[in-house]
Computed example of a mutant assay.
Amino acid sequence: MKGSGPIETGEASKVLTAARGGMNRGISILDFILRLVALMGTLGGAIAMGTTDETLPFFTQFIRFKAKYDDLPSFTFFVIANSIVSGYIVLSLPLSILHIVRSGAKSSRILLIVFDTAMMALLTAGASAAAAIVYLAHKGNARANWFAICQQFNSFCERVSGALIGSFGGAVVFILLILLSAMAISRR
């Protein structure tokens, strides 16, 4: 009876290690799925914003008002930031698959946390800059004599607002990815 204590402890340790490995594999699968969701949000936001333009006739067909995303530097920054983040997500997918196969990989998870944090900051900066311009487009600013243009350029404003939703959704997913990676590292 006295000899069975360490064996039971060793067996319990193996069961606990197997349970942690299964939990980390589940976290890795969720990480992969969330990366795909973030890719859809950021790439969709970049494409929606990058293809946004609207032309309105004014008095005659020869005089027209045109609204394009590249007329505003904030929207250009938004497209570039979302494109960079989308490219990063595509490049990080193989590491995410590696974590599914080898749930004990620690150094690559730390690397992903660092780069995920940097990409979340870039994504948030681009989306916030564009959100300020979208707010002015919707509400205007009477003190600065900036008029709301969304009454005239309705389709333009709808598309840029939709692009912002995808981008901010991607930022929320990056927060979840960082928390999941930190949780997987702390479980070791």
Results as ranks from 00 to 15, higher is better:
residue 1 M to L: 09
residue 2 K to P: 09
residue 2 K to Y: 07
residue 3 G to K: 07
residue 3 G to A: 05
residue 4 S to P: 07
residue 7 I to F: 01
residue 7 I to K: 07
residue 9 T to M: 14
residue 10 G to P: 02
residue 11 E to I: 02
residue 12 A to G: 03
residue 14 K to W: 06
residue 14 K to T: 01
residue 16 L to M: 04
residue 16 L to P: 05
residue 20 R to Y: 07
residue 21 G to W: 02
residue 23 M to E: 10
residue 24 N to A: 08
residue 24 N to Y: 04
residue 25 R to G: 05
residue 28 S to R: 01
residue 31 D to V: 05
residue 33 I to M: 11
residue 34 L to S: 05
residue 35 R to W: 11
residue 38 A to Y: 01
residue 40 M to E: 01
residue 41 G to V: 04
residue 41 G to R: 08
residue 42 T to P: 03
residue 43 L to G: 04
residue 44 G to R: 00
residue 44 G to Q: 06
residue 46 A to D: 13
residue 46 A to L: 13
residue 47 I to L: 15
residue 48 A to S: 00
residue 48 A to L: 10
residue 48 A to D: 03
residue 51 T to S: 12
residue 53 D to L: 06
residue 64 R to P: 06
residue 65 F to R: 05
residue 68 K to W: 09
residue 68 K to G: 09
residue 70 D to W: 15
residue 71 D to E: 14
residue 72 L to W: 12
residue 75 F to V: 03
residue 75 F to R: 01
residue 75 F to Y: 15
residue 80 I to A: 15
residue 82 N to P: 15
residue 82 N to V: 06
residue 82 N to E: 15
residue 83 S to Y: 11
residue 83 S to I: 12
residue 84 I to F: 10
residue 87 G to A: 14
residue 87 G to C: 13
residue 88 Y to E: 02
residue 88 Y to D: 05
residue 89 I to N: 10
residue 90 V to H: 13
residue 91 L to E: 12
residue 91 L to P: 14
residue 92 S to I: 04
residue 92 S to L: 13
residue 92 S to M: 13
residue 92 S to D: 09
residue 92 S to W: 12
residue 93 L to T: 03
residue 95 L to Y: 14
residue 96 S to K: 01
residue 96 S to A: 07
residue 96 S to V: 00
residue 97 I to H: 13
residue 98 L to F: 12
residue 99 H to E: 07
residue 102 R to V: 02
residue 104 G to A: 07
residue 105 A to M: 14
residue 105 A to L: 15
residue 106 K to S: 09
residue 108 S to F: 14
residue 109 R to P: 06
residue 109 R to N: 11
residue 110 I to P: 06
residue 112 L to R: 01
residue 112 L to V: 02
residue 114 V to M: 01
residue 116 D to M: 01
residue 116 D to I: 00
residue 117 T to W: 00
residue 121 A to K: 06
residue 122 L to T: 01
residue 125 A to T: 04
residue 126 G to T: 10
residue 126 G to N: 11
residue 127 A to H: 02
residue 130 A to Y: 15
residue 131 A to N: 15
residue 132 A to D: 15
residue 132 A to K: 15
residue 133 I to T: 06
residue 134 V to E: 12
residue 136 L to S: 11
residue 136 L to P: 10
residue 138 H to R: 02
residue 139 K to C: 07
residue 140 G to P: 13
residue 143 R to C: 07
residue 145 N to P: 11
residue 146 W to F: 04
residue 147 F to L: 02
residue 147 F to I: 00
residue 148 A to N: 06
residue 148 A to F: 13
residue 150 C to S: 04
residue 150 C to A: 12
residue 153 F to N: 10
residue 155 S to G: 11
residue 156 F to W: 15
residue 157 C to H: 14
residue 160 V to G: 05
residue 160 V to W: 08
residue 160 V to E: 08
residue 160 V to H: 04
residue 162 G to I: 01
residue 162 G to S: 10
residue 165 I to V: 09
residue 166 G to S: 05
residue 168 F to D: 01
residue 169 G to Y: 11
residue 169 G to F: 14
residue 171 A to H: 08
residue 172 V to S: 13
residue 172 V to G: 14
residue 173 V to N: 01
residue 173 V to I: 12
residue 174 F to V: 00
residue 175 I to M: 09
residue 178 I to A: 04
residue 178 I to W: 06
residue 178 I to Q: 02
residue 180 L to P: 05
residue 181 S to W: 02
residue 181 S to Q: 03
residue 182 A to S: 08
residue 186 S to M: 10
residue 188 R to N: 12
residue 188 R to P: 03
